[in-house]
Design a protein around this nucleic acid. Structure first.
Lengths: 245, 245
DNA sequence: GACCTTACGTCAACACCATTGACGTGTAAA
DNA sequence: TTTACACGTCAATGGTGTTGACGTAAGGTC
């Protein structure tokens, strides 16, 4: 047994592999992300990652305790990427909308890792920074603390839940994903009006709508509702007052 | 190769296994659910399920083309359980609310299985019936078809996404789950106001709110927004100042 | 420049996984 | 009673994550 993993900070010996690669936590995470992006979620296995790195698969265990630890490292990277370059506009509607879509998009870019990350609380720097930002949008936007907190919770959970949901669809093995999509034509398209009148009546609309994620519309609905809950609900929309943060 | 699976309707020979079990689609799904409930999602493998049934693992392939088909059958069972005994009240707000909470609850009752199932489109009987019901609530409630379809999509995805999200938290290995919950006290509770002013200012509220699911509030927000979008919105609740989309 | 310690890449093995083709038994229909 | 074939079983294939043992070469020390 023994502790095979040496913490990244105290690494000193950097021995190249037989094929000449010099491994590092960073290189492994990046290679994994490239592998998934290029060949799909099911291509991410220890053996394949080893091959892509030009190293023996078991070498990875010198850097990560197990594949779970590797996926978490990848996930943390995603949280960071979602915030990269974001700046507050000062209008809470805009800021929430952009932040929600950013989270959703960034997770979708790496479905496999997203699935693992979306329901964990890591407490790592990227995550706390994101929490701080969203709370800031709401409090600076004029929501009183108790409401801001409830809204924060619903907003974040919804973004993460949809991200995971859509990521799961994207991470499905090719065959299973196609099967799911075919169900719409093969099953729902052929339900008779006698037994399923509502489906039969709206089928073309349904089939078209279900192709995309439901998140953008769900997000708009949430923003609409927040408009009515906001303390100055009577005031107009566009009013970028002084900002903060 | 060849078609090993005989459709459930036309089964005739029921030969007991060596250990005396008489297999059926129903028995297999029920056993799988029991297995998952008892030993966690990772205990669900063809081999273990075979053992639990008292049959050779490969016997399952006489009933399901592959493990994916089995998963879909499990998923549909959960959908069915969510609808059991439901009756329309005639008020679309009430009906949507009840339906959403039912789905959420039914999935949470089997967190491990829910995780495997919440992301799939099965096209099976229970699922189509649920789709028909929800579409019916919206169309009978007065939403015009194009809007009804969009709302249906957002509503269902929201319910399933939150269900999966909360199921995931409930299904986490005990150690990992506790670790995640501790993060709130150990990390978020100790962030200094200088670097994370918003978190520091609202921490007690945050820690309390994050203990429960965000779904009920998110669902209310969606219903509030739908009130605004509904054709006879003018009568609506107080401060819905003619927002349109 | 020689020596020592040990990090870390490699190898081989283990236990598990899903899936499939061939086989033969016993059931149910004729 | 006979016959056909449904379906449970067996064995094999090629995948997976993970680990213990091993040796080599890198880095620090003198």
């Amino acid at each position: 047994m023994s502790a095979r993993v040496v913490p990244e900070g105290s690494r000193r010996r950097r021995r190249p592999t037989k094929q000449g690669a010099v491994l590092s936590e960073r290189l492994i995470v990046d290679t994994a992300l490239r592998l998934v992006a290029r060949h799909g979620a099911e291509a991410l296995s220890v053996r394949r990652l080893g091959a892509a790195l030009g190293a023996d698969p078991s070498a990875l265990y010198r850097y990560f305790r197990n594949t779970d630890a590797l996926l978490l490292a990848i996930a943390d990277e995603l949280v960071g990427r979602a915030q990269e370059g974001w700046e507050a506009s000062g209008d809470w509607r805009t800021d929430l909308r952009v932040m929600g879509l950013r989270i959703h998009r960034s997770y979708l870019a790496q479905p496999q890792a997203a699935l693992l990350a979306a329901h964990r609380t890591t407490g790592r720097p990227h995550e706390t920074r994101a929490v701080e930002k969203i709370l800031g949008i709401l409090r600076d936007g004029g929501f009183p603390d108790p409401l801001a907190v409830r809204v924060y919770h619903a907003f974040v959970d919804q973004a993460l839940a949809f991200a995971a949901q859509d990521a799961a669809a994207a991470a499905l093995p090719r065959a299973a994903g196609e099967a799911d999509r075919e169900v719409w034509g093969k099953v729902y398209g052929r339900l008779p009006a006698e037994t399923h009148p509502h489906i039969a009546a709206t089928f073309p609309l349904l089939a078209a709508d279900m192709r995309d994620s439901g998140y953008p519309f769900a997000l708009e609905l949430m923003l609409t509702a927040l408009e009515t809950l906001h303390p100055d609900a009577t005031a107009g929309p566009e009013r970028a007052h002084g900002k903060k943060s």
